[in-house]
Amino acid sequence: MRKVIRGFLGLGLICAAAGLWITAPRTIDADTLDGLVGNAEHGAQVFWTGGCASCHAPPTGETDEVMLLTGGKAFVTDFGTFFAPNITSDPNHGLGSWSLTEFANAMLAGVSPSGKHYYPAFPYTSYARLNDQDIVDLWAFMRTLPPSDQASKPHDVSFPFSIRRGLGLWKQLFAHPESVVSADLTPDQQRGRYLVEGPGHCGECHSPRNVLGGIDYARWLAGAPNPSGQGTIPNITPGALDWSESDIAEYLSSGFTPEYDSAGGEMAEVVENTARLPQSDRDAIAAYLKAVPAVTNK
């Protein structure tokens, strides 16, 4: 009997240890970014591709304040309400005192400088696909932005989602930094894949999710309910989107649909970002969207 109890105890310890190991925040190797020099000008392009301002700008949305990334915008989800944090260069309330490695860990691994998991409302599951040079360039750009000493609002998340450690398991299950579309692609389509699957994080809204909030990669970009609760976010695979490549590229530039209506909802903000990209990148996104596996909605 004592043996059995000891056995159970041992098994329990192993499970606990495994749990701790699985849920422990993992970070990138400290020397990964050694020798790379940041180019702030190119970092600005990464910034607009990443749509950082769309979430981190103050909720009032005044266009002249768009570069003062104080955060504060609320994101209401099934798991609780998340508030975008201050990501200005302020050393106390923003990222001013961070190192490049700490910034890279936030972006690529979803881990904070104090070693905690971030909630995936911050789309690091996509940003994990950024290449090292883009990370270094983005960081160089972020450091040029003005500081704000406005404190970040704490998230309002209910139990059990309030235990950040549990996100370690979530990451094991759902965070996959490898490419989603693995078909043979032209260099243009590959560039589009990088932009869409990585910094552009299009799949975060345009792909459906399971009950735990993990992306359903079998229905990649096939549309999903709008997290705001109003309407749906459209299927942009060739199974539903019949726009030509030039239609898509024009939409990402001027916001005009092929019917010459303008982009609506959150997509209007996305277009404000994509309008700042080089035309070649908008063309690449369009080329990739035509190469995505077609999914039809029932």
Partner: peptide, 16 residues
């Protein structure tokens, strides 16, 4: 085109 699209969009975004 870009400026025109932006002008249409800014009103639609705020008021539609």
């Amino acid at each position: 085109m870009g400026g025109l699209g932006g002008a249409c969009g800014s009103c639609h975004k705020a008021y539609r």
